[in-house]
Write a protein that binds this DNA or RNA. Structure first.
Lengths: 219, 219, 219, 219
DNA sequence: TATGAATGAGTCTTCATTCAT
DNA sequence: CATGAATGAAGACTCATTCAT
């Protein structure tokens, strides 16, 4: 891998903690990710990342080559691992637990990577999203296709509402997990709903998924 | 006539059809909306709008004053009317038809205003979204609060799954309508699903909402 | 004279009093003069004049042809007449009264045309001043040369301090009249001297001119 | 090394001598001052300064941040030192020499900083002058107030024409030094007076100040 | 390894001016 | 007589990037 890998520690600017080059690279990625999430990738200048990281803009270019390569690095070193995690979470699940496993897994994931929903919505979901193409060409197909296939299988076995489309179910699952998590700031404000935590959201989601709207508990 | 007049008469941009000012204004709004939808508001320069409209950047300033006012105009003249439509669609519905009405209404709406889902996701859902504040302060609260209130009422009357949160149900509904519609390009590609049309999506969504995942049709 | 001279009164915008074209021209000149004085000619846009006059920018161009011609009109129709006044004030003065006449005349002039000192200092005195060239080629030479000549004559007759230069005396006179009048805002603030009115200034100036610094009243 | 580097090496603007950054900063200040003096601060674009300095406009922003900061730098690094000089020149003077000291000091000052009178007149004296506020809040009050106080003292001691106002005397002194020096181009042309040098001007001024107009030398 | 200096392209906005109406 | 529409040029400023050091 490219430029700064030697572990020689040269504490240049005393403001930043004494870390070696690899750490600085990670620091830059952290800062960049934070800015990307809060401002959007397209709206974030390298300058602002550099400033937030206590570093010159030239350094950011130096470490990552150029803007696109930085975005690529964020994708590969921050986003991909998260999807890998999700994949491994769902690997062993048997079909009946799959939906519950997905919902719980996603919630657990977001607990550790709170930036995921927003980044997903803004940069992947959207037409010009900076990460969409990367996702679609690198990893995306695998996970959702695998899940959809297993839904289809369950459906054929009569374990799943026959009126559902297995592929669309995959979409619905994201619309019921990542989407509400990304949208929290807005519904929290609209409904004055700071009392609702993620656990309640998860419970609501599972209730909706498992039994739909009808009050089937009642006899 | 005294003041200095160059006698050469140059007909203005012959490329654009001879339309009056009001039309041009609408044309500019159309173009701006299109660019906003495809690139994001924050990433769209007035210059690019002007170019796409076959007009100088100065003219865009001339018509709308400045960038923020243009965004405001888009909001008021393009987005607000759509929400008004939705509101009137749902006005007369009785509680039992409400969810179905919402899903069908949203689909019908998007049929006529295909840009709605994307714009919603990018500019309202997201943290720094250019339209979020406008929506939240102008119209947003009313519609979702009204619907959530009616859900709560239905729930008290025993007509609605007791484990759902009425406010989160509102969120879920959007996650199952606007979200999949906005995400169509992506799932269509991932699943090679150009065969799935909006009608199927609507059917799937209603099936999921009404009975959940379980295969309750089977005895 | 150029464009709008017909006395047909068409009250277009009801905001502005019902005045005919000639009056509108005068109105525009008034407004332009006011803006020129307060912002400087170079810093004043036709737009701002038009706005202040309740008129479209196009109208200003229409009436005066272009920016330079407007400045020319200000010079000819506002500044020239003032110098003519001064000239006539000093015409009949006999040599001994000349200095006193100049000081008093200038003060009287400024009483009626308070904008004179500022305009003079900014637009004539300065190197790139918009009116300097106009003044130098149109009128300037006459008045100061005439006065300087009469000072020289008085000096030859032994009526004037022999160590003075008659031409520089002309300069000094302006430095002791127009200059302090233009500078009033600044010295008034520096010295907290809102108590000093023009009459006191005039008295001080004459005292300085007539006897210099020394306390010659004392026997 | 990895990041993409175009191998073509283009030596930067060979026109300007190879000077280090500090020198370039000074050069830019020099050029800016010259433009400010000849065109007025408000009428001088960064673009024109950059062009005159053989530099891109972006570089001017790079060095000074923005327009106001550039003006501030001119004030602090060019104007303030001059006033400090004047102050130190007058520090030790005893009251009787004060006026003469002021006139001579100002002439000496202008000899080394020929731009001072014009800048003073245009940017401090004038109402919207860009440097006025800076001067008034940073330094102005001290010097003139000190001088006026000493004039008042001399007057009380009977050493100064009793009909003068000490504060206005301060104003008159500027009107008889900075003003004629700033106006030289104009009176030099009006009177065809290229023969009058600063020494003669100084002599004239002192003669006027010390004895006024009357020919008191004659018995 | 890291940066300061520098640039060219691009941002939005304002300006004076023109001309058909 | 007066203006709305339109433009091209210029305004200040920011940006990503490069390169010598």
């Amino acid at each position: 891998m490219s430029p700064p890998r030697k572990p020689i520690s040269i504490p240049r600017r005393p403001g930043r903690p004494n870390q070696d080059a690899a750490d600085l690279r990670q620091h830059l990625l952290d800062v960049a990710l934070a800015r990307f999430v809060s401002d959007g990738i397209g709206n974030t200048s390298l300058r602002s990342i550099a400033k937030a990281a206590g570093v010159t803009p030239a350094l950011v270019s130096y470490y990552f080559g150029n803007r696109d390569l930085l975005v690529g690095a964020i994708f590969e070193e921050r986003l991909m691992p998260v999807f890998a995690e999700l994949l491994s979470m769902l690997a062993g699940k048997n079909p009946d637990d799959l939906v519950r496993g997905f919902v719980e897994g996603m919630h657990r994931l977001v607990e550790y990577h709170p930036w995921l929903p927003v980044l997903w919505v803004r940069e992947i979901l959207n037409d010009g999203g900076a990460l969409r193409e990367l996702l679609l060409t690198h990893i995306a197909p695998k996970l959702p296709q695998m899940l959809a296939a297993r839904f289809a299988e369950a459906q054929r076995a009569g374990h799943l509402n026959a009126d559902l489309d297995p592929r669309l179910l995959m979409v619905s699952l994201i619309g019921l997990t990542l989407f509400p998590l990304a949208a929290r700031p807005i519904w929290s404000r609209v409904f004055n709903a700071s009392d609702i935590d993620n656990q309640q959201l998860q419970k609501h989601t599972l209730a909706l998924l498992e039994r739909g709207l009808e009050n089937t508990h009642a006899p």
